[in-house]
């Protein structure tokens, strides 16, 4: 089975935009070990493309959650709490990361200043 076929198989394992456990199990039984690894990797990639991870220093209010859902329509949003962010928000959309928080700014400042000295 080629890589492309396994990728299609992973895309077909969804029902109404959600991963179908029965389909996944039936497919997994038919694959070799190596193919199964590839299939899992494709499922993981597919999941990460359908999911947005939002990191905040505190849980957002309902109005904020609604606004974010409208902003990322069609994707599943998972909220994480990380108090070390201090202020702001961090949005992880597959491989694109939007760092709009105070912690990141301070880290960048530190790296910038220290890189100028031996």
């Amino acid at each position: 089975m080629t890589k492309k076929q396994l990728k299609n198989l992973a895309l077909q394992s969804y029902t109404k935009d959600l991963l179908d456990q029965k389909k996944v199990e039936s497919v997994a039984r038919l694959l070799t070990r190596f193919q199964l690894k590839q299939y899992i990797r494709e499922l993981r990639n597919s999941e990460s493309q359908k999911t947005i991870n939002i990191v905040l220093p505190h849980l957002p209010a309902k109005t904020d959650q609604q606004m974010l859902s409208r902003l990322f329509a069609g994707k599943r949003i998972i909220y994480h709490v990380d108090k070390t962010l201090l202020l702001g928000i961090k949005i992880i959309d597959n491989d694109q990361v939007y760092d709009l928080n105070l912690k990141d700014t301070l880290d960048n400042l530190f790296t910038f200043v220290s890189s100028g000295y031996d």
Binding site: D95, Q96, V97, D99, L100, L109, F112, V113
Partner: peptide, 12 residues
């Protein structure tokens, strides 16, 4: 000279 825009990053 600090002001590099690192708000959006493409990660791997």
């Amino acid at each position: 000279s600090f002001g590099v825009d690192k708000k959006t990053q493409n990660m791997g």
